[in-house]
Design a binder for these strands. Structure first.
Length: 118
DNA sequence: ATGACTGCGGCGT
DNA sequence: ACGCCGCAGTCAT
C-alpha cells in the first residue's frame, strides 16, 4: 500500500529523477567527515541549505547503514552526544575509539574535533 | 488532510 | 534551566 506521503520518497528512487533526496544529501556530506572528527546536525543542515535540523537526525536514524555512513560522527551543536540508532553508549564507544574525548555525555574537545563544511 | 512525534536549535524568560 | 516555536520527514488517523 502506497500512501501519498511515501510517494515522494519513492520518486527519488526511480530512474529519471533529477532531485536528490534529503537523506542522500545528508549522507553525501557526512561521508566527508574523517575519522577523529565530528560534525553537527546544524552544520549538516547548513551545508544542505535548510533549517530542518530534526530531519537530519531522522535521516541518520532511518539509514542504519552504519558501516558506510558514520552517523556516530554527528553530534549536537553544543557538544552533547545526541542520539544513535544502536544507543548512545554505543555511539560514545565508537567516538572514543576514534580519538574523540567524551565526558559526561559531551564531547570535551569539541572545538578541535569539529569538522566544518567549507 | 491533519496532528503527533522525532538522534535539533534559537529565542525569550 | 525551562518552555515555545520552526523546520522536514514519517506515521497513524
Amino acid at each position: 500500500m502506497l500512501t501519498l506521503q511515501t510517494r515522494s520518497c519513492l520518486n527519488n528512487l526511480v530512474s529519471g529523477n533529477t532531485s536528490v533526496s534529503f537523506d542522500e544529501k545528508c549522507y553525501k556530506l557526512l561521508s566527508r567527515v574523517p575519522r577523529g572528527k565530528v560534525t553537527t546536525y546544524k552544520e549538516l543542515a547548513r551545508a544542505i541549505g535548510t533549517k530542518a535540523y530534526r530531519a537530519v537526525g531522522q535521516a541518520m536514524n532511518r539509514n542504519q547503514k552504519l558501516i558506510s555512513i558514520p552517523c556516530h560522527r554527528v553530534v549536537k551543536s553544543n557538544g552533547e552526544i545526541g542520539g544513535y540508532a544502536l544507543g548512545v553508549d554505543r555511539k560514545i564507544e565508537l567516538l572514543v575509539n576514534e580519538g574523540i574525548q567524551v565526558r559526561l555525555y559531551k564531547v570535551s574537545n569539541f572545538p578541535q574535533a569539529f569538522f566544518r563544511f567549507d
